[in-house]
């Protein structure tokens, strides 16, 4: 088979994407595509892992056994989702070791939403309803991303996440149907989680540096602003049902556009949290590094045991 020129390879690669086909690990791919995907998928994986921390805060204080079992199952799912995504990222030629090191040394980022604290039980409801709700909007889009292993991981994750959002909504519904204080607690959680949830979709399209290429490569099929609008349009009626209100005085239904208008996001806060100055950034990183360090003896023991068994067999 004759050698193809770089240009021919690039053209074939783009045509495959444009034809709605998938790029697989051993296929030729643009180096920038590989790097961008590796960054995005590993960040996504780290987010799943860090996402366990704010929720873990409430396992021992869940109000009853049903809630505790559901919360544990949800957190276990997040660990699984992290693992699916690490596997997908590894197919792009980076080792698990390298990916984890980038995370533990603070070089790789994770979703900023997890740098907010979970102060009350209602926050667990708000995370499931809003944070998982926002994540699902993004992940449904990614189910058809052009990179095969990423798309397949997303399909599995989306299938599992729908219970996460429902359990969150159910927690809030129970609080909203409870005493005045319980309902106030639900409202307070919404007040604190609403804006950070909107920030999860990232900067406005005009300020989003990676969007162009990722759209061309069929990783991002809808823009940040489109996804954010979709999330708002779906979520506001749910809040109406709960009987609580978004902390946005500019939020109102627009008959002409068929969408909700909403107020301006505090991007200064967003930038602060992204650059490490959110309420819990340091706490989250410390918890992750500690878990990794404290787990070293388990990894060492498992390696020693496997070696012992192998030597015995030989």
């Amino acid at each position: 088979m004759p050698e193809l020129s770089q240009l021919e390879l690039e053209t074939r690669f783009q045509k495959k994407i444009d034809d709605n086909l998938y790029i697989e690990p051993k296929d030729w791919m643009l180096e920038k595509y590989r790097q961008n995907l590796l960054r995005q998928i590993s960040q996504h994986a780290h987010s799943e892992v860090v996402g366990m921390l704010p929720e873990a805060n409430w396992i021992t204080r869940a109000p009853n056994l049903r809630r505790k079992a559901a919360l544990l199952a949800k957190i276990q799912d997040e660990a699984g989702h992290g693992l699916y995504l690490y596997s997908a990222a590894e197919t792009l030629g980076s080792s698990r070791e390298q990916i984890l090191n980038a995370f533990l040394t603070g070089k790789a980022k994770y979703s900023s939403i997890f740098n907010y604290p979970t102060l009350t039980w209602a926050d667990i409801g708000a995370i499931g309803w809003l944070v998982d709700g926002a994540a699902i909007i993004n992940q449904v889009m990614l189910q058809r991303a052009s990179y095969g292993p990423y798309a397949r991981a997303m399909i599995r994750i989306c299938r599992e996440e729908s219970f996460h959002q429902r359990q969150g909504f159910e927690i809030l519904l129970t609080l909203c149907r409870g005493s005045k204080d319980q309902k106030a607690m639900a409202q307070d959680a919404l007040n604190r989680w609403w804006w950070p949830s909107l920030m999860m979709f990232g900067p406005h399209d005009k300020d989003s540096p990676h969007t162009g290429d990722m759209t061309k490569w069929r990783v991002k099929r809808e823009s940040n602003d489109e996804l954010r609008q979709k999330f708002i349009d779906r979520t506001v009626p749910q809040a109406d049902f709960l009987g609580i209100t978004m902390p946005d005085k500019d939020l109102k239904w627009n008959e002409t556009t068929g969408h909700y208008d909403f107020g301006e996001i505090n991007w200064e806060e967003f930038n602060q949290v992204v650059s490490g100055n959110g309420p819990c950034n340091r706490e989250r990183m410390n918890a992750r590094v500690k878990a990794h360090t404290d787990g070293k003896w388990v990894r060492d023991a498992a390696t020693a045991y496997a070696n012992k068994k192998r030597n015995k067999a030989a």
Binding site: E90, G93, S94, S95, R96, E97, Q98, L100, R299, A302, T303
Partner: peptide, 10 residues
């Protein structure tokens, strides 16, 4: 191929 991985074989 990625460098030596201490995270056990795949």
């Amino acid at each position: 191929m990625a460098e030596q991985d201490t995270q056990w074989p795949l």
